[in-house]
């Protein structure tokens, strides 16, 4: 809009004469300007409060558990149920093992589903059904996913409280997140890359696997690592699938033994589940120290995932475009 129009509109409202706006108009404009300043100030304050609260939460978690964070005994020893001085060694291992298994299962499935949805059938009935299903899965409470896992994997398939049951429950929790991330990453690759591949007589499969996926890799890696953080901290889906007990682990135990760390049919309490369990049981004498320490370890791992996600994504991007 031109300034002439602007003046005309303003004039219509209040000021009959452009060179001498009347007092009424000036007062209104002044009020509006003050209002604008006050509103901006309030909004900035809101943002400030959020940031302060967030930083406070993180500092609180890390500070409460700081002494345990550097305590090698705590990080490696087995947990104690009734006396003080227990560690979180098995829980730490279980958390990472479950994470790796979950990613091994969920990344290929999500990649496949995302490729189907973006490349083979961007429109149509099947796609609509699939999109609804994925959306439903993403909005299901994780406790419901965990209960379904208990019903299906633990009881119906008789796998018991086990790493496998837990990994599958986490997979269901993780798939919608990953499908969305990979879908967005693939769609963000410029269309001309796909056109170029198809115009050379490549199949959609080749175009996707050799051109689109490599080009989308930075975003995919970032998304996968960020989702790893979510999986790592998840507890509600695990308490009734991977279980709430952590057998003492020994690398020399045979693979079918519940003590063999890699046995996927053994129960495996993770860090997050450990925090929940000791707090709801409340029998460990050094409860607050152990849960604060565990939370700090959990938080450090998740912050590390966050940082790795960003750094790795950026590094890959740089490598691809090769400045």
């Amino acid at each position: 809009m031109t300034s002439a129009q602007e003046t005309a509109v303003a004039g219509e409202k209040n000021a009959p004469n452009q060179s001498m706006p009347n007092a009424d108009y000036t007062a209104t404009a002044h009020k509006a300007r003050v209002q604008d300043k006050v509103a901006t100030g309030i909004l900035a304050a809101i943002v400030g409060v959020i940031i302060v609260a967030l930083v406070a939460i993180i500092v609180y978690i890390l500070a409460s558990g700081a002494s345990k964070l550097v305590d090698v005994h705590f990080l490696t020893a087995k947990p104690e149920q009734f006396k003080a001085g227990g560690g979180i060694g098995p829980e730490l291992f279980n958390s990472f093992y479950l994470l790796v298994l979950t990613l091994l299962i969920s990344v290929p499935i999500s990649l496949g589903a995302a490729i189907f949805l973006t490349q083979y059938a961007p429109q149509g009935r099947i796609t609509n059904i699939a999109k609804t299903a994925i959306e439903t899965l993403s909005s299901l409470p994780s406790i419901v996913v965990g209960l379904f896992g208990m019903l299906t994997f633990v009881l119906t398939l008789h796998w018991g409280f086990s790493i496998l049951s837990g990994a599958l429950a986490l997979t269901m929790f993780n798939i919608p997140i990953l499908v969305r991330v990979i879908q967005q990453a693939l769609e963000a690759v410029p269309r001309d890359q796909r056109d170029a591949a198809l115009a050379l007589g490549l199949t959609r499969w080749e175009a996707t696997m050799h051109v689109l996926v490599p080009a989308a890799m930075p975003a995919i890696v970032t998304g996968v690592v960020l989702s790893a953080g979510r999986v790592f901290g998840e507890a509600a889906a695990l308490i009734y699938t991977a279980g709430q007990s952590a057998p003492v682990l020994s690398w020399s135990a045979p693979i079918w033994s519940l003590s063999n760390p890699l046995n996927v049919f053994r129960p495996a309490e993770t860090l997050a589940v450990h925090i929940w369990k000791i707090n709801s049981e409340g029998v460990v004498p050094d409860l607050s120290a152990v849960s604060a320490g565990t939370a700090a370890v959990l938080m450090v791992c998740i912050l590390a995932f966050d940082i790795i996600a960003r750094v790795a994504g950026r590094a890959l991007e740089r490598k691809l475009t090769a400045e």
């Binding site: 901290g233 997050a272 929940w276």
Partner: peptide, 10 residues
Amino acid sequence: GIPSVVFGLV
């Protein structure tokens, strides 16, 4: 990314 148990603890 902060796990819900950690929120519970806070």
